[in-house]
Simulated scan of single mutants.
Amino acid sequence: MSGGRGSGRIRRRLTLGTGVLAAAVLLALVGPGTASAEAVDGLCAGRKVRALPFSTGRVDIFKSRGYVCAVAIAKHTGARKTMSVSVKARGGRPARDKGRYTHRAGPVTVHAGHRCVWVTGKIDGRGVSSGWILC
């Protein structure tokens, strides 16, 4: 009788061990590349669809499930400088972040659905405007 009970425990442990091993392999294959490709310091969800460079920095744009997120990143960090970033879906109001920052402005996110968006970013008086994109 004890042989039947022991084999059940062994099967459960093997099943658990197999599940843990499968999860570890999956994380090893998927984990390293996705975090850096999907977000700037984990600020925006989704995948990076555009980078808009300009003389004092860049604006990174991300898209995920109808939402568009943008972050303005300074080329040189340290001293506080005036920075701003905004995202506007066609027909909607813009989401904005403006202030004196050392590294970045944003993130700002809007629900765009399938509409075009207009993204702007400015750092120390220099900036970029995308025009209507992601249509």
Rank of each mutant, 00 (worst) to 15 (best):
L27K: 01
Y67L: 13
S84C: 02
G92Y: 15
L134Y: 07
T109A: 08
C135N: 11
V20H: 07
R47G: 13
V119N: 04
G99P: 01
D124R: 08
V117F: 06
G17H: 01
V59D: 01
D60Q: 10
R50D: 15
A45K: 07
H114W: 11
L14W: 03
G66S: 09
A89G: 06
V59N: 09
A79E: 13
V71Y: 00
E38C: 10
D60P: 01
A70H: 07
K48L: 13
R11P: 00
A22E: 04
K75D: 05
S55W: 01
R47V: 12
L27Q: 08
L52P: 07
R50A: 15
S7L: 12
L21M: 05
S130C: 05
G106K: 10
V87C: 06
F62A: 09
E38P: 00
G33D: 08
V49M: 10
L14Y: 06
S130N: 03
T34S: 11
G31W: 07
V59H: 06
K48I: 05
G3A: 14
R80H: 09
A28M: 09
I123M: 05
A95H: 04
G92V: 11
R126L: 13
G46Q: 01
V30F: 15
G91H: 12
W118F: 13
L16C: 09
R12I: 15
K98R: 11
L14A: 10
P53I: 04
K75M: 06
S55E: 14
A89I: 02
A79M: 11
A24N: 06
D60N: 05
G106H: 03
I61Q: 08
C116V: 01
W118V: 02
H111I: 00
S86Q: 09
G3T: 15
T34K: 13
G91W: 14
F62N: 09
R100Q: 15
L14V: 08
R126M: 12
H114L: 13
G131W: 09
A24H: 05
G78N: 03
